[in-house]
Design a protein around this nucleic acid. Structure first.
Length: 130
DNA sequence: CCATTGACATCGA
DNA sequence: TTCGATGCCAATG
């Protein structure tokens, strides 16, 4: 029997762990995620997400391209998998415009050096509806 | 907008 | 094990 088990390497684990820091309703980019784990290759990150065995526990669908494009999902850059990704994001309040870009760039999650960033945006009072 | 290069991890032979 | 090819990108010409 050949082991069909996905090989979870330490690198992939870092990607998944860092991705777990991204809350729902928020999206990040491959570049940000790569920078977070100290990797200069967003491609390696994307590939790691492609075989994400912990999906959807690991919100790999919350990772989009740096151009605010949906990116890809499950080794596919278009088709049904993309619809799933967009569906998941839509369910979390994240939508894309007709240009195929993120409708609300404010939804972009960013690591401000420290993983414990209390408030990414606090204008005044009750601006953020749930 | 399209084509090419860059950088890094994983896979197959 | 080492080499070559690939991949949910990014940056540059």
């Amino acid at each position: 029997m050949t082991n069909d088990w996905v090989r979870v390497t330490p690198f992939r684990r870092r990607v998944y762990e860092a991705l777990l820091e991204v809350p729902a309703g928020r999206v990040t980019t491959y570049g940000q995620l790569a920078a977070r784990i100290g990797c200069a290759s967003p491609r390696a990150v994307g590939q790691a997400l492609g075989e994400n065995p912990f999906a959807p526990v690991v919100p790999c669908h919350r990772v989009i391209a740096g151009d605010l494009r949906p990116g890809g999902f499950s080794h596919a850059v278009a088709g049904a998998p993309l619809r799933r990704k967009l569906r998941l994001l839509s369910r979390e309040g994240v939508h894309f415009d007709t240009a195929g870009k993120l409708a609300d760039p404010a939804r972009l999650w960013r690591w401000i050096g420290s993983p414990s960033e209390p408030k990414p945006d606090s204008r005044h009072s009750g601006s953020d509806r749930m």
